[in-house]
């Protein structure tokens, strides 16, 4: 009687580890492929799937690996260094501003009473329904008439108050900032902004972390936006610059892999840095019911 559950749980964990192993392989192999390919010549890329074979340590021809692709990327000709800086600037500015604005608006719509609150909420809901591609043409026209084309403001301003974010923070506030805590702070003498910064924002921290990552990633990967709004080459972010290497230089896979690696690293670092908040933010709804 006693040994059965134990036997079962052993079997269970065996199955679990098998599944986890398969998932890891599925995730890790393409990453490995990407990293390895970034360090190969065009020739090497075509000849070997993974590492070039030879008689070095572990039977690998270490000598054939090269950082040539990175030199090309960072050469003035392609100038990925500037694109990297551009991307970091664009993504972090957009993420910070959008998170701030969405948190502020979402909190207000959940916790405060103000004139026009109902209409505000309808507006947010309505904005959620509109598919983004529909907005490309009218936004372009607007940016043109506001003289914001080919400027970062033209990319950042339209992105700092996404309805989705406002709604997300509204729900997060309803769920994790009890009304009585806001009232307690009000009685304790805090002003409305004081309550937002000192009480609500810390309580919304998981959502702040998650939304920072979401917005940062979305901006980082945004290709259509900068492609349409920015014209000057020196203002382009990574997504556009990496793409352009391909049109100009044929399908140069080694270069593409190296460019992708450069563009993944900062995001991976950010994710590692914020992952606890990110996961807490995504699962907070599941835990509390």
């Amino acid at each position: 009687m006693n040994s059965r559950p134990r036997h079962q749980s052993k079997l269970g964990s065996f199955a679990l580890y098998t599944v986890l192993l398969i998932v890891s392989v599925v995730v890790v192999v393409p990453m490995f492929y990407l990293v390895v390919s970034a360090f190969k010549t065009e020739q090497g890329f075509l000849e070997h799937t993974f590492l070039p074979t030879g008689d070095g340590f572990l039977g690998i021809a270490w000598g054939e690996l090269t950082t040539k692709q990175f030199h090309r990327l960072f050469s003035p000709e392609i100038g990925i260094g500037r694109a990297l800086v551009n991307s970091i600037f664009l993504s972090s500015t957009t993420a910070l501003l959008a998170t701030f604005v969405c948190a502020l608006a979402g909190y207000a719509s959940a916790a405060l009473d103000f004139k026009g609150k109902k209409s505000f909420e309808w507006l947010i809901l309505a904005a959620l329904i509109i598919p983004p591609p529909l907005l490309i043409a009218p936004s372009y026209q607007w940016l043109h008439s506001l003289n914001l084309l080919d400027s970062y403001a033209g990319l950042i301003l339209p992105a700092i108050a996404p309805a989705f974010g406002v709604f997300l923070f509204r729900q997060a506030t309803l769920q994790s900032v009890p009304k009585s805590i806001v009232e307690a702070a009000r009685i304790d003498g805090a002003g409305e902004f004081g309550i937002f910064f000192a009480i609500a924002l810390p309580m919304l921290r998981p959502m702040v972390g998650a939304f920072l990552i979401i917005t940062f990633l979305a901006t980082w990967n945004n290709f259509i936006g900068p492609q349409i709004v920015l014209q000057s080459t020196e203002k382009q972010p990574l997504s556009v610059v990496i793409y352009q290497t391909q049109t100009a230089y044929y399908s140069d896979y080694g270069l593409l892999m190296a460019g992708t690696l450069v563009s993944i690293l900062p995001v991976a670092a950010l994710f590692l840095f914020l992952q606890r908040d990110f996961i807490a933010g995504l699962s907070s709804g599941a835990v509390k019911g």
């Binding site: 009890p178 009585s180 805590i181 009232e183 307690a184 702070a185 009000r186 009685i187 304790d188 003498g189 805090a190 009480i199 810390p202 309580m203 921290r205």
Partner: peptide
């Protein structure tokens, strides 16, 4: 409320969860 010189104790306590007891009392 803040200018009425009152203090209120709520049914669900309404403590600030991210602050220590000391910070709560001193807020």
């Amino acid at each position: 409320p803040k200018d009425r010189d009152i203090a209120m104790v709520f049914q669900n306590y309404a403590l600030y969860p991210h602050m220590t007891v000391e910070k709560n009392i001193g807020f």
